[in-house]
Simulated scan of single mutants.
Amino acid sequence: MAGLDQALSDYRADYTAYYERCKRDTSPKIRDANPIIYLIPGVGMLSFAKDKATARIAGEFYVNAINVMRGANGVDEYVGLPEQEAFDIEYWLLEEAKLQRMPKPKSLAGRIALVTGGAGGIGQAVARQLLQEGACVMLTDIDAEALAGARDNLVKVAGKDNVATVQANITSEEEVGGILSAAALRFGGVDLLVSNAGIASAAPLDETSLEVWKRNQDILVTGYFLVSRNAFRIMKQQKLGGSIVFVGSKNGLVASAGASAYCTAKAAEIHLARCIALEGAEHGIRVNVVNPDAVIRGSRIWDGKWKEERAASNKIDTDDVEEFYRKRSMLKKSVFPEDIAEAVYFFVSEKSGKSTGNVLNVDAGNAAAFTR
């Protein structure tokens, strides 16, 4: 918006002058001089604060204050507090003591995350991890009913302020635009993208239909492209950097017989992430990949036909699939959604602040998938 930078600079100067006029010898140091409430003609009111709850409460207080002023003017004339009295309330020493006892911000406080495939086991585990670290999370999924259930589960973890959902199909350019708009309207933008939406299919090459091939490409390649492209545009506009994580698959590194459509699409995901990492570096946008393998518990993919197909391919019963993959791993351990969430958190947090274009396998050990 034209003139916004100057208006903000003027506001900060006015606030600093107010502090200097009213401060006492015992007054706490000046607090953040940026405005919290913004009134934009033709748009409405926006509120900015350290977290969603504080921003919401500030907005509610402002609206209530306007209603008090309107009521007072309806009877006589509203008169505000004298400047010095208002300052003494704002910088009350007991209030300052309370603020000093507040816990330190969590590692992702103030960060806005978008998680695709948010209704599945991995999506929910990732969202829970990010919420526990202080982020606001926008979940999206094509399954409206499952998405509503995921939201109910996550609200119990972090409250209504920090969780939002939007049902959408990531293969639709228009709907992807709607996802990013919803995140901007609800939380103010997007800092972290976890691209996790997925499907799986298995069939011998000569039995793989063009429809199945295109469906894998549409969701696992085109969908990831559309979401990351739109998120990338917003991150560039924000000029705050950002982090993108693709939830890929061991199959993106290792070919599997009877799953050419899926393996090819997952390989394309990994290469797309590397391409975005190259372009994102100059903007402080990091892009990395987490490759799970055989995350069966809580997975909607494994609850469907994929489990039967992989059981048939490995000549085992469907009830033995999880144990089969556990024994196949080098560490002889099962991989759970929470394990993937930990890896995703590593990449979106400053713990990996100097990492981009990398791939982290979370597969309990698979020698054929060693990166090289």
Rank of each mutant, 00 (worst) to 15 (best):
D152G: 15
R274E: 07
I276Q: 07
I40T: 15
I57E: 07
L272D: 01
A312C: 08
A146W: 03
G80R: 08
W302I: 07
V115C: 07
A368S: 13
P35T: 06
N73A: 11
P103N: 06
N169F: 01
A273T: 04
S228L: 06
S47P: 03
M69F: 11
V176G: 00
S47E: 02
E95Y: 12
M45N: 06
K52R: 12
V63K: 15
L192E: 00
S47V: 02
V247I: 15
D141P: 04
R151S: 06
I219D: 02
N314M: 11
I179G: 00
V362Y: 07
P204M: 09
M330V: 15
E269P: 04
Y224V: 02
S352P: 03
K214D: 14
E338P: 01
L331A: 14
V163E: 04
N169T: 02
S27W: 08
V348D: 01
E282S: 15
T116G: 09
L185C: 03
V344G: 03
T16P: 00
S172L: 02
A119K: 02
A364I: 07
V115K: 02
A127S: 14
A119S: 15
R297T: 11
A268Y: 07
G159I: 11
I199M: 13
V212G: 00
N169C: 12
S243P: 02
D319L: 09
V287M: 02
T54F: 05
E83M: 12
I112Q: 04
V137S: 03
T116Q: 06
T264V: 10
T264W: 03
L130E: 02
D88L: 12
A367C: 08
K50E: 12
W306T: 05
K160R: 12
G118W: 01
Q124T: 10
K98Q: 10
M235P: 05
I112E: 01
S256M: 10
T208F: 08
E96R: 11
V155N: 05
N288W: 07
D141H: 04
R24A: 12
Y325C: 05
E173M: 08
T208K: 05
L108I: 03
L278T: 10
G241V: 06
R31G: 13
A265S: 13
M235Y: 08
E145D: 14
A265C: 09
V348T: 04
G117E: 00
F246C: 09
A97W: 07
P103G: 05
